[in-house]
């Protein structure tokens, strides 16, 4: 294919990179809002992967459909997550996961 054409591997590599950035962000950052954003980045990397594979496999657009479902579910997840973060912030006035240490044995 031409340089500007569709090459599956490029999308797979890009998606894997985005997913890894998201995963590392989730593991190293201590601000829960940024951790939530990292999870969203991971989900979007998955969307990219699904859409790229869908182009390769063709057929009944399962990959594209899957991506739409993920977008919708990710929105619901973000809503619940932000609500939990908000209720935590109201009680502790902090959004740092390091300070979430009330529960220890």
């Amino acid at each position: 294919m031409s340089a500007l054409g569709y090459v599956l591997e490029h999308y797979v590599v890009l998606s894997a990179l985005l997913f890894t950035i998201g995963a590392i962000g989730f593991l190293v950052r201590r601000n829960v809002l940024i951790q939530l954003m990292s999870i969203e980045l991971m989900l979007n990397a998955i969307n990219l992967l699904l859409v790229a594979y869908n182009r390769q496999h063709g057929g009944p657009m399962t990959g594209q459909l899957f991506a739409f479902f993920i977008i919708a579910v990710a929105a619901a997840e973000a809503a619940v997550g932000l609500a939990i973060i908000l209720s935590y912030y109201r009680l502790k006035a902090s959004v740092h996961s390091d300070e979430a240490d009330a529960l220890k044995h």
């Binding site: 951790q35 939530l36 999870i39 997550g81 939990i84 973060i85 935590y88 996961s97 979430a100 529960l103």
Partner: peptide
């Protein structure tokens, strides 16, 4: 309770 929910959610 909030902290538990936060950890479980993340």
């Amino acid at each position: 309770s909030s902290e538990a929910a936060l950890k479980y959610f993340l």
